[in-house]
């Protein structure tokens, strides 16, 4: 049975139509669509294995969808992957932190790879100033997480893709993250994040992945 043609893509916003994702030989989700306009937040929920991480990786362009289309302001993301990479921050499960580099060096490197940014401000935002000269091997899991999240604040990008960003965060760090997300959205930024815990994000759209399990 042929699949019905996907609906036309909206001209504004980060949008997907008819997305399907395959892991191994199994279809994880299918027929998934969303629209993420400037200033909006997308909350991905669902049980383990429902494809939250996979969807974020599709959104980042790390993986290709089995079917469907992702578009930014009406232009397919796959047509210009370089432009898409330039406009997004992706924080995955792993922190991308080297044990022998210091906190400040790590942040300066990741900011520099994106053309530079304000490292000091980012350290301040996630309360890492006092740790700036520590080698990362001395950090706790929560501190490493904060360092990874500080990359968000170190260089601007209109789209944030966060995979379980609250893992290992204490309540202060969680507040820092929520504040950073609010500031990002206030400037017209978009964020998509996966979570198990309920997050107080004002006006966030909830996307339950379980609804798209084939």
């Amino acid at each position: 049975m042929p699949a019905p043609p996907p609906p036309p893509l909206p001209a504004i916003g980060f949008a997907a139509t008819g997305l399907a994702c395959r892991r191994g030989e199994r279809l994880v989700f299918a027929g998934l669509s969303f629209l993420l306009a400037p200033g909006e937040a997308l909350l991905l929920t669902g049980p383990n294995g429902s494809g939250k991480s996979s969807l974020l990786r599709l959104m980042a362009g790390l993986a290709r969808p089995e079917a469907g289309l992702l578009a930014w302001d009406g232009a397919a993301v796959g047509d210009d992957p370089a432009a898409h990479r330039a406009r997004l921050h992706f924080i995955g499960h792993q922190e991308a932190v080297k044990p022998v580099l210091t906190v400040a060096e790590t942040l300066a490197f990741w900011a520099g790879m994106r053309g530079g940014g304000d490292v000091a401000a980012a350290l301040g935002r996630f309360r890492l100033e006092t740790l700036a000269d520590w080698p990362c091997r001395m950090l706790s899991a929560g501190q490493r997480r904060r360092l990874a999240l500080a990359r968000l604040a170190a260089s601007p990008a209109p789209l944030w893709l966060l995979d379980e960003p609250t893992t290992a965060l204490d309540s202060d760090a969680l507040a820092d993250l929520l504040e950073a997300i609010a500031a990002h959205r206030a400037q017209g930024g978009r964020v998509a994040l996966s979570t198990h815990a309920a997050l107080p994000l004002a006006g966030a759209t909830n996307l339950s992945l379980a609804d798209f399990t084939p």
Partner: peptide
């Protein structure tokens, strides 16, 4: 192993 490659692959530099 530590996720740096994933992050690097998403940097603007090809």
């Amino acid at each position: 192993e530590d996720g740096s490659l994933e992050a690097l692959a998403l940097m603007p530099l090809p």
